[in-house]
């Protein structure tokens, strides 16, 4: 398969009053053409910073201190802001989290959707607006012709997110980065937006990086999943690998905190006990160790490398080391292993 994007050993630091925050501490992953990669992790784990680094849309106090972002083999981090402008909204575009604040309140939505076309292509305003109208129809805005001259405040939250999506896809990007596009929406609208993204992926053949803190929405959209914690990836693999053969105790925790039909929203907050480490002084060993019931001495001392679980499945936990004692995961995870076997998987 074609690797359309590859992030290698990304490090991002933020200058703050209290010192340097090491927000991203060596993240590597790739995106295959046409697939959807989900990046999951608790809020604050560095998902947004990781994807913003791809487009170099970091706050002023942030710097990419190390790493490569290869787009078709070309390192984006070597490009100037001007060169990046040519890619943003054209080849790689982004959908932001909060539809209530992502649209310019003083510009008609027709103009906002047409804007990327006018920036990147030599088209007339009229043609751009016409295309904007088509795309608004495509994302499911009813009666788009009549609504082109309306302003954001005249739309509901779900409709605004559709408009934000329309802006992102209007110029047929190769890569669509969706940073928690459904978090601010209610459950029914969430499902509609996910369906819409899948449908658009089919239609325009874009590759998607889908970010969420909620594993629940991942199964419906992703081909592969990367799990992130405290500025590093801890496990990645196919959807089935992560859902039915998870190896990292943090992934176990995330899976266990997934809402099921009989839990309600408030129950799942803080379901993994403890809080993420302060990245002003990142821990020497495994950042998850203080919250990890299965932590061993070595977890305090040394960061675990990635251990191979299968060809496409890796996890960074000392539990996978050949000398590690055999531990029994929680019952809920064992149930998942059973399912994995039924799917024909090979559980370690």
């Amino acid at each position: 398969m074609d690797k359309i994007l590859e992030v290698k050993d990304l490090h991002v630091d933020f200058d703050t009053y209290n010192g340097v925050v090491h927000a991203i501490r060596g993240v590597s992953f790739h995106l295959n053409a046409g697939e959807t990669l989900a990046i999951v992790g608790e809020s604050g784990s560095g998902k947004s910073i990781t994807v913003r680094s791809i487009l170099q849309l970091l706050a002023k106090n942030g710097t990419i201190s190390k790493g490569e972002v290869l787009y078709h083999g070309d390192d984006l981090l070597q490009k100037t802001d001007k060169e990046m402008d040519k890619l943003r909204g054209n080849k790689i575009s982004m959908i932001f989290q909060d539809p209530m604040t992502s649209l310019d309140p003083t510009m008609t939505i027709g103009k906002q959707v047409a804007e990327p076309l006018l920036i990147h292509n030599n088209v007339s305003k009229k043609d751009a607006l016409k295309r904007a109208e088509e795309v608004l129809r495509l994302v499911g805005i009813p009666n788009p012709k009549a609504r082109m001259n309306d302003y954001p405040h005249q739309f509901s939250g779900g409709q605004r997110q559709r408009i934000v999506i329309a802006i992102a896809i209007v110029d047929y990007p190769e890569i669509l980065i969706a940073d928690e596009p459904t978090t601010a929406l209610d459950v029914t609208v969430q499902a509609q937006i996910i369906d819409l993204l899948k449908e658009l992926q089919q239609k325009i053949g874009t590759s998607i990086i889908f970010i969420t803190h909620d594993l629940g929405v991942v199964a419906g959209i992703a081909d592969r999943v990367a799990v992130m914690y405290a500025g590093r990836l801890v496990e990645f693999g196919s959807v089935n690998d992560i859902f039915y053969n998870p190896q990292h105790p943090y992934t176990w925790g995330l899976l266990d905190s997934m809402p099921t039909l009989d839990t309600n929203e408030s129950d799942r907050l803080n379901s993994i006990p403890g809080t993420p480490p302060n990245l002003l002084n990142p821990p020497k060993g495994d950042a998850f160790a203080p919250r990890n019931a299965y932590a061993m001495e070595i977890d305090e001392e040394q960061q675990p490398p990635f251990f191979k679980v299968s060809k496409h499945h890796y996890a960074a936990t000392w539990l996978l080391h050949p000398n590690a004692p055999k531990v029994t995961p929680p019952a809920s995870i064992l149930n998942r292993y059973e399912k994995f076997k039924k799917l024909g998987g090979n559980v370690k």
């Binding site: 802001d81 040519k86 943003r88 909204g89 575009s93 932001f96 804007e115 920036i119």
Partner: peptide, 26 residues
């Protein structure tokens, strides 16, 4: 520092374009 300015930048606007088209009016 608002979200819609970030979105405007992510559309491929130059820094100057962001100011002229979105920031000034708001």
């Amino acid at each position: 520092s608002s979200d819609y300015i970030e979105l405007a930048k992510s559309k491929g606007n130059s820094s100057w374009g962001v100011v002229a088209k979105h920031a000034l009016r708001n």
